[in-house]
Design a protein around this nucleic acid. Structure first.
Lengths: 215, 215
DNA sequence: CGGACCCTTGATAGCTTTCAAGTCAGGTGG
DNA sequence: CCACCTGACTTGAAAGCTATCAAGGGTCCG
């Protein structure tokens, strides 16, 4: 069980798996809920393969995606009793599950586990701070560029990028509308920054130009 | 030194102090920098009195304030070697300083210290997530209302609220312009939600209505 | 081949920003 | 004690970026 917080999974391991490998693993289909906002946070998870989103929804239906997660990522860490975000798969996914009390006990007796937990939380915080800066001070184009580059980096992609989420997911992460995301991607294509073999595949044709947009 | 991460300071203790109380304390005037973005993160801090902002600045000058801190708050925690944000006082402030290696050593040998560190980091993460939701999915009015209510809660104020930051600070935290903040506050006053004895004092006249705006 | 879902594109509207003056308050010096 | 000065704040008018409303196009799959 310790492996949940110890071994990062190589990003190459991202084939959807339809079966539960053992008692500690759980498989999900496309667009399935792993846990909901407000639900007791009694487990922590590590994504073995696939990808997912964590999000919050306002009373009136406005949705904000907090983060996307990929193979190897740990998610579901909470300080309180309940989850503050919901977690849903983007496609078929395999997840490793660990009871929270077991982890707490482990952290209590092993310093390295406690440190790793802190490290994971700090990483989340850093990502969240970048998200704030992006939503607060960047234009639509800059946001889309940042997301594409982040995707490339985190999935270890070269020029050809696999986009596991819908335009709506991108919009709800970037705090834009689906139309604005679509228009922006089209504009990038028109400007020769990217090519779109399919809607869910992005070929980075001028990475330097994209990077220049976000710094 | 342990007290840096153990004892929350009562929010009532917020009188500006002009002198250094002992070797572990440091006093600052108005609008002074405690540390800058990119600077080595070799210390952690606790605000004894006063208030401050942490912020990041984009190349072109756009500024995003990540957080405001008040008496009792710990700040300056980083996972990496350098600070990702700058910290500047809003007014005169007294700060308790602790070398980071000392804290790391303490956390290494004492489980309760390690847990407290994790708790502090998780609190920051929670605040950051709320910030994301606010910037991403809330209107100007909702943002200003949220800030006023947050200020009231964190400084333990009743109806009369002390606003320690300028309109520009508010704007850079909420990702609005100074003009929009000013207009929104004026509108609140016009609508009878608040009164403004001075620009830096806000009297909450209809707290329920403000709360209804943010849920 | 039909249907459903996702995506794209166009036209218009709206909220916030930008640009531009003023106004106000606190501090300083005569 | 008051005039002045400077920084902070407010207010108005117009522009701009993104959202909204509306249609149409593509693609996967039964």
């Amino acid at each position: 069980m310790l492996s949940v917080i110890q071994t990062p999974v190589p990003t190459a391991v991202r084939q959807p798996a339809a079966v539960v490998l053992d008692g500690l693993h759980q498989s999900f289909g496309r667009d399935e809920t792993i846990f909901d906002e407000g639900q007791p946070a009694d487990r922590i998870y590590q994504l073995i393969s696939g990808s997912l989103r964590t999000c919050r929804i306002l009373r009136d239906g406005r949705r904000q995606i907090e983060a996307f997660h990929f193979a190897g990522d740990v998610f579901g860490l909470e300080s309180g009793e309940t989850h503050r975000v919901a977690a849903q798969t983007l496609g078929p996914a395999l997840v490793r599950v660990m009871p929270r009390p077991a982890l707490a006990a482990l952290a209590h007796e092993r310093g390295d586990v406690a440190r790793r937990l802190l490290e994971l939380t700090t990483d989340s915080l850093r990502r969240c701070q970048d998200h704030v800066l992006m939503l607060g001070r960047r234009t639509a184009s800059e946001r889309v560029a940042a997301l594409l580059l982040d995707l490339a980096e985190r999935t270890g992609a070269q020029a050809l990028l696999d986009v596991p989420m819908t335009r709506q997911d991108m919009a709800d992460y970037l705090s834009l509308t689906i139309e604005t995301v679509s228009r922006t991607v089209s504009q990038f294509q028109h400007d020769g920054l990217i090519a779109l073999p399919t809607t869910r595949k992005v070929l980075l044709r001028n990475r330097a130009a994209l990077e220049a947009m976000i710094d």
